[in-house]
Amino acid sequence: MSLFQEAALVAGKDLRIEARAKVIGQQIVPFGLIVLLLFAFALDPDRGVLQRVAPGLFWITVLLALLLGVSRSFAVEAENGARDALRMSGLDGSSIFLGKASALAVELLVFEALLTVGVVVLFDVRLASLPPLVVGTVFATVGLAATGTLYGVLAAGIRARETLVPVLLLPVVAPVLLGATRSWESSIDGVPGDAWPWVALLGIFAVLFVGIGMLAFGPLLEES
């Protein structure tokens, strides 16, 4: 089997589990919408503050969902000795990484799509120029999913992983938050020219961390 076939196999498994568990639909998406509601409580919705800071709030919410997603992605491996099964499956570390990261990316994209509807409806945000926004979101999501999966396996099997992953992961993805928020702002303001450099940065981040993940995942899985 080729790298991508193996990755598709792992991704398919993760997505199938998620589809059957329905955790995203029943818990993570409602969680995101609650956070949007809380932002409105914290920041006066009448004075246009929400509209101005909507991109930042959107991506903060995505980061929170990422932490939940990473935690779930490795919780399913913790039960029934699934991690040992994965290790003994003969699959290459890189392909397991690609599979798990793409499953996480797909889950995040679904979450982001629904959250975008929430932001547009609740915060009255108008998405002026879509192309940089969509491309930027995809790059940012791939970067987040790759780093999340990397730190997920790093912390897998550690008892304090629920608290350790945020401390390790959030500073690393700080540039993604910056880039994604800026590219959203420019897209909403209707100046896509300002957004593309940030989209490029997000792309570089994504490629870099997919590469690091493919190299490091195998050794880390062995040790977890």
Binding site: L154, L168, P171, P175, L208
Partner: peptide, 28 residues
């Protein structure tokens, strides 16, 4: 040792990206 070495290298690679993005952000 292995776990921490990988984490340290990831952090080290991330520093220039953070610096670049933050500088860019502030100058813009």
């Amino acid at each position: 040792a292995k776990r921490c070495a990988i984490a340290a290298l990831i952090a080290f690679i991330d520093v220039p990206i953070v610096h670049f993005s933050v500088t860019w952000w502030r100058t813009l």
